[in-house]
Design a protein around this nucleic acid. Sequence first.
DNA 1: CTGGGGAAGGGGCCC
DNA 2: CGGGCCCCTTCCCCA
Length: 482
Amino acid sequence: MQKKLKTEMVEDLGASRLYRAPGESSHQQPQRWFNAADITVAHQSSLLKQLNQQRRQELFCDCNLLVEGQLFRAHRNVLFASSGYFRMLLSQGPDGLADSVDATFDVFSPETFTVILDFIYSGQLDLSSHNVIEVMSAASYLQMNNVINFCKNFIKSSLEISVKDEDSERCLSVSETCSFNSVAGDETLEQQQQQGPSSVSPPPALWTRDNSRSQSSFIGKDLDQESSASVMKTNPSSPADDLHAESEDLHDPQDPLYTLPGSERRRGKGGTKRKGSNSNRSNQPEDLDLQEARTQKAEKAEELYATLPPIVGVIGHFNRDSNPIMRFKCPFCTHTVKRKADLKRHLRCHTGERPYPCQACNKRFTRLEHLRSHFETIHQARKLVCRKCKCQVTEDTGHVVCEGSRRYRMCTACIQEVDCDDIPMDSLDGANEEPALLLGVDGEEEGDSKRSWMVTEDDDLAEDSGADLIIQQVDDSDEELE
DNA sequence: CTGGGGAAGGGGCCC
DNA sequence: CGGGCCCCTTCCCCA
C-alpha cells in the first residue's frame, strides 16, 4: 500500500517529482526520496562553484576585462548569460567568435566590478550603504536587472520607504530568498519586462493604483540593521523570486513622507488626493512621528546623495554630425537627462525629498517653483478671477475670501449673492503684498531670496480648520509680518 | 457616467 | 549650476 502511494507520487508530482536514491530498485523499499528541485539546485550550485573556481584560477577564461586599468578575467559564456550588456557585446558580429574578448570600462571602479563579478559567479551581492549606488549604476550599465532590483530593495529599506503591508512579507522573502539564477532568472525577468508590466505578477507598485495606505514593516527598520546584514545572500534553492523585487519601485507614492502630514497624498504621477486637503487635522503625536521620520528621511536622502558616484551614468548618443551627445542616466530608473542639474532635480522624485515646505499649510514640494505656484494659487489668491462666477475681477471689484488657509477671490456681486454679511474679506492690497523677510529651508536667514511661504522644519504648523467654507477674518498684515 | 476645471508633479530648456 | 518659465500629464472634484 505504501509502495503504491509513493509510486503514485512519483508519477503525479510533476515539477517536484520524487526520485529514488541511486542503487535502489523499484522492488526495494525506498530509503530516501529526492526532490527534483533539490537535485537541480545542488547541480547548479556545484556548477557555479566550479565556474567560480575556474575563474579564480584563470582556467578557460576567454574574456579580459579592463576596469580603470585593473584586469579581470572571466568566462564569456557566463558573462553572456548574466548581463545584457555582455550579451550585446559578445553577439556583435564575428568578434564574438574570436578566441578572446577584451572590454574596457571606465564608468565604474574595479571595486564595484568586483562586487558585480562576485555576484555573477557566486550569487552573493556584497552591498553596503557605501557601494549600493555605484553597484546599482554599474548594474544598470551592464543591464543586470536582478542586481538593480536587489539594490533597489536595499536602498528602499535603507530609506525606510514604506510599502504595503501585504507586500512587506513578500519583500522580506525577496531579500532573503532571491535566487541567483543569474542565467535563467535574469532572462526570465527580461522576458517578463518585454511582455510589459501587465504580465509581471505582481505588478510593480509604480503602475498600481492601490488605495491602500497601510505601511510596511520596513517602516522603522534600522538602517544599521540593514547595513550589518549588508551581504545580501541569494539562495539558489528558491525559484526566481527576483521578479518580486521588480514589483517594488523605490519611488513609493504610499510613503507617508512623500507628502506632508495632512496634506494631499499623491498617487501615481500627477494625481493628488485632495480629500481633506484643508490639512493639518492630524493629531499631534502623528505629526511628531512624521516630523521625526521626515528628518530621518532627509538624512537618508543626504546620505544617498553623498554616495552618488561623480557620474551616475553616461550614455552616448550621436547627433546628425555623428558627435556624441552625453546624457546622465538616473540610477533608479531608465530616465536620462542632458544636464546633471536636471538629474539632481529628477532624483528627488525617487528619494522623496521635499525641501520646500509651505508655511501656510505645511505641504511640501520638490521644487521652489511648485511651492510658489501653490502658495500664490491657494493662499494668496493671486488669480484675478472670481471663484464662483469665474469672471475677471480687479482689485476694485474683487475681494479675497478666506477658507481655512485657502484664499480666493470673489466678485462683489457673488459675495452679495452669497449673502454673507460676515464674510471676512482681506484687502486685495494685503493679499498682494509681498511677504516679508523670511527663513530658509534650513531655518537660516537668507534674505529676500526666500519667501514667507517657505516654512522651516521647526515652525509650527499653520492652523487650518479644514471646515467647509468656514470663512474667517484674516489679517494679512499680521500674518505676513510673521 | 462624463467632461471641464483645478491642483500638482515632472521634463525640457532658457537665463 | 540654480532659478525660473513653459508645457504636458495625471488625478480629483464637481456640475
